[in-house]
Design a protein around this nucleic acid. Sequence first.
DNA 1: ATAGGGTTAG
Length: 517
Amino acid sequence: MARTHKRRLTALMPRTVAAGRRMIWRQQKWKEKFADLSSDGGGGRIKLRGRGLIFSGHHQLLFSFAYLSISSNWFLEKTAFFEAPKAAKQLEKAEAAIIDGIRLGVLPDVVTYNTLITGYCQFVGFDAGYSVIHRMKEAGITPDVVTYNSLMAGATRQHSLPHCLDMLEEMLNMGIIPDVWSYNTLMHCFFKLGKPDEAYRVFHDILLKNISPCQATYNIMINGFCKNGYIHNALMLFRNLQRHGYIPEIVTYNILLNSLCNSRMWKDMMRLFEELRESGHNPNAITYTTIMKCCFRCKRFKEGLEIFMEMKRKGYAYDLFSYCTVVGALLKSGRRQDTNNCIAHMIKIGYELDMASYNTLINWHCKEGKLETAYNLLNVAEERGEDCDKYTHTILINGLCKAGDIDVAQRHLNHMKLMGFDSLVAFNCFINALCKVGHLDYALQVFHSTDTKDSFTYSSLVHNLCKAKRYRLAAKLLLSCIRDGMRTLKADQRAVLKGLSLTGSKWDAKKFKQKCE
DNA sequence: ATAGGGTTAG
């Protein structure tokens, strides 16, 4: 194997001095071409990853590449930090560079095209990625397992199970034998679409086919269980694996920590965090962000901020995720000065903001009552090519509600629904605003006209009905909330109970209390 | 290639 590789390299080496010069000239030419692709931003972040350096700029693609030292073969390795609308154009440029390379005698290989497919799948879409296959074949290169695995990952990214299965079938038809990663990706796809049973069947398939599962296989299973609400199964699998000598990775811990946090199992989470520290792993930025989020959720602000400081000390905090978490928590707790300071730091670091960070900032402006500034910032985000999402709409609707622009809020809410965004949170904001301005009956009318409600919807109405001394209706709503298996606030229960007994219906109060338990 | 951020009631 090593020998054939060496022979290939020698074959590519220049035979004469003149040939050598020509080759250097060609490489120079190609490098210039490459420089043209990645020059116009100069963000200057350099990361070491895989085989080569990744240069990241602000607005443009970022490529990592490696030269096989003597040979003129090259790889485009990984594209990252694309800006979505520019991505297609940049990928076309990259493909043009490949064609140029062929003309200059620098031949692409299957890795080159696999990289391109990954890029198209990630930044444009599955179809764009799949279309590369034809051009790849035209260039005389046969797809391999990695090609199809990349396409399966692309299909999974856009929640397309049919495409994912198609790729597996096409792979089999071509006589390519799927590997662990093909099955890992298929499993991930099933889990993502909320089909844990099918995913589990894929795992059995892996074992039946005598393929040995890798760490990622188990991580995907644990994550899939967690995300589908089977956290106890995930924990059981985790413990079972440990008993069999499996040493969990930091990723495994992060998956479990996050879902323990989301299911409010704080104590178990802290215990697992201790275990992580004892295991000799170093917590990474993701671990810290998760733990921080947990602290903020239990209202332990001081502890959360201490973790943020620890992150900063270790050099992890130069990360938009952690800043958004902290700013979000500070905003919620109403610490204006701290929020402003934190945002100033975040801006100073100068990272390219993504939609989540813009949303954080837009929410900040809304909370400050500067709706106009919020809308201006939204324009900036859109000009930079970010698409607003359900969070953006919800934040703006909430901002409009809080500013008293109920009519505009309602129009925006309808607009949001028409665009196909999930709007329950925005709906809750709207209901709450209607109650606050005294349109309780209209709020109830809107409430009854829809099927999707959650504990927030009920809580707003119950709270405001109590304030209006309409205890019987409040009790009725609270009970139907409990009947549907939703969480209720203790404060709401107390308010209803107190109201019922104060208004003289002791019997109602007693019955209500019984039903609550 | 598997893990983290941003929206609502009190």
